[in-house]
Amino acid sequence: MTSPPFPREGGGPGSQDTTLVAPVLLRAQENIWASRAAEMAAIFMVGDGLIGLLQPRRHVDLWKDDALGTEKLVKPFVDRPGRRRLYALVQIVAGLALAARQKR
């Protein structure tokens, strides 16, 4: 009989005693959510940057009217695809740098 891949609590075949988790491990587990949030931000930055780099006019046009306040954010890029492409490169580099800093 082979042992199960995960230890079981409460007796029975393959059961093991469980021990308390060290506080350091709990802090590491809590930090995983910060790492995940940073990773999601990095993915967004790289993806948005790629779209802005490849399709700057279409991307800005999508967000310039009736877009819940983003009109002010994209105003510097309206009819300026070169400026949007430059910003896109900055977004991509920053997103990749953020992802590279993640430990897990």
Results as ranks from 00 to 15, higher is better:
Ala38Pro: 01
Leu98His: 00
Trp33Ser: 13
Arg80Pro: 02
Ala34Ile: 10
Arg85Ile: 05
Val21Ile: 14
Val21Asn: 04
Gln29Trp: 06
Met1Gly: 15
Asp61Gln: 13
Pro81Ile: 02
Phe44Pro: 02
Thr19Cys: 03
Met40Arg: 12
Leu98Gln: 06
Met40Tyr: 04
Pro13Gln: 13
Ile51Lys: 07
Leu96Asp: 00
Asp17Thr: 04
Pro7Met: 13
Val90Gln: 11
Val24Asn: 12
Arg84Leu: 12
Leu62Ala: 14
Arg57Phe: 00
Gly11Cys: 11
His59Pro: 05
Gln91Glu: 15
Val46Asp: 05
Arg57His: 04
Gly12Tyr: 14
Ser3Val: 14
Phe77Ile: 00
Ala34Gln: 13
Arg8Trp: 05
Arg57Pro: 02
Gln16Trp: 03
Lys75Gly: 06
Ser35Lys: 05
Ala97Met: 11
Lys103Trp: 06
His59Gln: 01
Leu26Met: 10
Arg57Lys: 06
Glu71Phe: 10
Ile43Gly: 02
Glu71Pro: 09
Val46Glu: 01
Asp17Gln: 10
Leu25Trp: 07
Asp17His: 09
Val93Arg: 01
Ala22Lys: 12
Pro56Lys: 01
Asp66Ser: 13
Arg58Ile: 04
Ile43Arg: 04
Ala37Cys: 08
Trp63Asp: 02
Lys103Tyr: 02
Gln16His: 09
Arg8His: 09
Met40Glu: 10
Arg80Asn: 06
Arg84Thr: 00
Gly95Ile: 00
Met1Pro: 12
Phe6Val: 15
Ala37Asn: 07
Leu53Tyr: 03
Gln55Cys: 07
Gly14Glu: 12
Thr18Phe: 15
Arg80Cys: 04
Thr18Asn: 08
Ala97Thr: 05
Gly14Thr: 09
Leu98Val: 03
Leu73Asn: 03
Leu68Asp: 14
Ile92Ser: 00
Gly52Glu: 01
Ala34Asp: 13
Gly95Gln: 00
Glu30Thr: 10
Ile51Tyr: 07
Leu53Asn: 07
Asp66Ala: 13
Arg57Trp: 01
Arg84Pro: 04
Asp61Ser: 09
Gly12Ser: 14
Pro5Gly: 11
Trp33Leu: 15
Ala100His: 00
Asp79Tyr: 09
Pro76Arg: 04
Ile51Glu: 01
Ser35Met: 11
Phe77His: 06
Leu86Cys: 11
Val93Tyr: 03
